[in-house]
Amino acid sequence: MGTKAFWLATTAAVLIVFAASRLVTNDYVFFAGYVVLQYVVLATAWNILGGYAGYINFGTSGFVGIGAYSTVVLHKLVGPPIPVLILVGGIVSGAIGLGMGYLTLRLRGVYFGIATLAMAIVVQTLVTNWDFVGGSRGVYIIRPAHVPFIGGYIQYLFLVMLVLAAVAVAAARTIERSVFGFGLAAIRDDEQAAEVSGVPTLRLKLIAISVSCGLMGMAGAPLPYYVTYLDPASAFNLGYTANTIAMPLIGGTASWVGPVIGAIGLATIQQVSTVTISSALNLLIVGVLLLICVVVAPNGIVGLVRGKRRRAGRGG
């Protein structure tokens, strides 16, 4: 897809989803749609570090929680509009990601993963013991019932997440095709060879983790307004981590399309099964799909399609 075509398609997708949402009167659709879009942002953000640079981040829940709780703090102090909260959540989360990266990006493989998981648990413990944001009791957020021009608040939140998803996907695609993305691919394939080819590996990894974690924080920032009651256990839910890793792996990590396909597919199945079968089934579905994926499509759905195409192209 050319760059012009990508922007046209993205804008069209946003407008079509927005127009279609005008026709929907059932609020539940927006609640479910918000979650799906939130996962598009999270999976896309995760893939910038995990897919492009090959560093598996187990700290998604930590960064969602940081974004959410930076909103809680700002809400209590000033109460700015959602776009400002998203921006601040992204900056705080990105900065903490940068700090974590500086400490942990010299580690490789499982050691990096363990360090990120530990970070998420440390932040959760800190927030649980911070009385100003409600501690373990949690905190209530009173949100306005309506937003001018848009209607109900959930419609507004859905729209905000829709735009954020478009921004995240555009950012991932831009990185993928840039010189920066080339450097990340070199790091993923062989870090030592990348370094002696002139790639400043540490600096590139730090930029990638900042962008990745920043976007995760942005996805988490509207969460308190979405749930209206937030406690550390739900903000730092490890389900975010599991889902966010599973989605790019199922969709395919090599390009920006993979996480989008994985997030929309998996999150939709989860939302539908929550209301039709049982909410406890969610992670079981993720596990089963991940297993199937490992066996049938080790490079994700995108890898499967590309492999078929390549074989067809070679005529065999």
Binding site: F182, G183, A185, D189, A193, A194, S197, G198
Partner: peptide, 21 residues
């Protein structure tokens, strides 16, 4: 040899051209 396995042969050469030259 430590090639960048996900890149094509010609792309392998682009890495030092972008990042070194």
């Amino acid at each position: 040899p430590k090639p960048f396995r996900s890149l094509t042969v010609v792309e392998n050469l682009r890495v030092p051209l972008y990042y070194s030259v």
